[in-house]
Amino acid sequence: MRRAGRGAALIAAPLPADAEVRGDRVRAPGARGGAVIYVHGGGFTDTMPEDERLMAYRLSKATGRPALRVDYRLAPTHPCPAALEDVLAAWRGVLDEGVPASQIVLVGESAGATWVLSALLEIARAGGPRPGAAVAVSPITDFALTGASLSADDGKDVLSHAVLGSIADRYLAGADAQEAPQSPLYGELRGLPPLLIAVGTDEMLLDDARRFAEAADAAGVSVRLEEYEYMPHGFHLSERGEVLLDRIGRWLADPVREFTVSDPDAGPYALAHGPDGALGFTEWGRGGVGRITTDGRITTYDLPRSDSEPHGIVQHDCALWCALETGSLARIEVLR
């Protein structure tokens, strides 16, 4: 995976304190705490406020949380990264209202899904709290347009290669198509919150969703990819959209999240909880240990001998201590 280059981060400094948050507040009956930040689609250039308010209502009803529809600036008048700045302003605005970050869910569809993933990269890069979860429906993740499904599903989908090329030109306005955050696939994905990615199998963007999900999983992110058979782009607006909304609600209510921390053959085994909230773990099959922080960042450490076979582990005195099969202890300094 190509990582963002030196000039790739388009948001070079924190947003000013007076950044404007534009949009609509929508609350379904029974919605209580937390918040959904909803970022609509429309090819980066269009908006349909009434339809988007209805979608915000449906999301509020499905998740039991009030929703904020972000009225972001549109290309080509306001090209990348204007809309990203607006999504980040909405995120910070909801935080400033006192909503805990862990209770905020970012949800985006199509172009909005791309903005959601881009925003997650910027939030992770800047540090600080991260959202509790995010949902991306049919995102474009690679504006270099290299996914195999762009050709395989051309003619089956409501989109076409020509349309996507035109969208890319208006959206990027000269920004590099192979750099993040504008093309999320090329970003550093470690530390992202749990993700639900949904896509139709007849979509040209099928591989954009699949490849991002695979890359996120490899980076240790808890990610679920849901594919809806024979569905084209925009399927979430059809009757099948009710199935997706129900799935989103159930997924958010599920307390179980899985995080990939190492190769299955490495055999993650014992766990140790540190005072900073991070977890240490042994990799019995690999002869190593690892550590995952509260923001999902994973670091692994090789032990001097591959046959060390670490068993028990504790975190003490700014270090991980583990008992080895070789009849010795290993100390790995992790906090300097």
Rank of each mutant, 00 (worst) to 15 (best):
A180R: 02
A216M: 03
A113C: 09
W284A: 13
E226C: 11
R190K: 11
V163S: 08
S118T: 14
T326H: 08
G34Q: 06
L320T: 03
G132P: 08
H233L: 10
R170Y: 09
V107T: 10
G327K: 10
E239I: 07
H233N: 08
L145G: 02
A126F: 09
A17K: 12
A272M: 08
L244G: 05
V39H: 02
Q178P: 00
I248D: 00
R58C: 05
V289K: 00
S110D: 07
E239R: 13
P49M: 09
G108V: 03
A111Q: 03
P76G: 12
G287M: 06
G5A: 14
M231D: 04
H78Q: 12
L159P: 01
P14K: 08
A75D: 06
G220T: 02
G277F: 09
G165I: 05
A12E: 15
A272Y: 12
T77E: 15
Y269I: 01
A270K: 04
I11T: 11
L159I: 05
A180F: 00
A136V: 01
L120W: 04
E50I: 05
F212L: 15
P268I: 08
V137H: 03
G112L: 04
G187Q: 04
L252R: 07
S160H: 04
P304Y: 07
L335Q: 13
V21W: 03
I11S: 10
V163E: 11
R130H: 14
V261Y: 03
A133K: 05
A215L: 07
P79T: 08
A175Q: 11
E85R: 15
L117P: 03
T77P: 00
E258I: 15
A266G: 09
R224H: 10
D307L: 11
V135R: 04
A215R: 15
G277R: 13
T141M: 02
R286S: 13
L192Q: 03
L164Y: 05
G274I: 02
M55I: 11
L237S: 09
A266N: 08
L120H: 02
I292P: 00
R32K: 14
G23W: 00
W284D: 08
Y301T: 12
L10G: 00
L205D: 02
P49Q: 09
